[in-house]
Design a binder for these strands. Sequence first.
DNA 1: GCCCAATTTCTACATAACGTAGAATACTTC
DNA 2: GAAGTATTCTACGTTATGTAGAAATTGGGC
Lengths: 124, 124
Amino acid sequence: MATLGDLERSVMDLLWDSAVAQTANDLRDKLAQVTGSDGKELAVTTVLTVLARLEKKQLVTRARDTRPHRYLAVTSREEHTVELMNEAMGNVMDREAVLARFIGGISPEELASLRRILDDGASA
Amino acid sequence: MATLGDLERSVMDLLWDSAVAQTANDLRDKLAQVTGSDGKELAVTTVLTVLARLEKKQLVTRARDTRPHRYLAVTSREEHTVELMNEAMGNVMDREAVLARFIGGISPEELASLRRILDDGASA
DNA sequence: GCCCAATTTCTACATAACGTAGAATACTTC
DNA sequence: GAAGTATTCTACGTTATGTAGAAATTGGGC
């Protein structure tokens, strides 16, 4: 998967934060608010271009049957994050070492929740 | 941190795989072997350019006191991977959810080692 | 001390990704 | 079918990366 640019990231954040599908205009308006306080409105075509690119990257789908197409994220932010993490691990052979270091760096709270997760899903 | 390009990645892999510092020529030779069987030798300047960029990205340091400068990776591959993983998690608020999903996707063996790691370092 | 050969730095160009948006085309609705 | 709205095409500037020649630097040998 490709890394997201700033605008792409902002759009994905908006999509991830809303349960319902958004139109390009919705997103442009929200971007104006979120993106700093500059209030600088982007052209809708800009948003549409980015959405098309995100669609090509399979991060976004759109409902083409409604007229203002409605866009929504394909995966959750968490799912996407996990994919990035796995991608990062992909090249490494010593996955255990990575896990060890990773765990060594997380907060006690997260460590606790990690234990909990492991204990709960006590599968094979 | 920036994502590495293909050549940058190859160079880092070579540096990560060798304990001793390498010269640009060393790396060029090894790249010719590693990079497919095309045996196509890159120009040394190409390797040097990439090394300079990796240095700027603080992934590589070089000994400037020896004449053919000798380059070596600043961090281990594992360390770097962990950084990427943390960077991926950086934006997310629900880190627990990410952890849960991440764990849900790893192999039983890794799960086992994960438990082991957690049990060993039973710190606060 | 000077020159050569090896090495490094500068400069440069091609390609691709991304931000950005106008021009052109396609729907909808009246 | 005219008008407005929405989408697609096309395009340009910027930055990252792969690639390497030209120019400068430096360590040795004579």
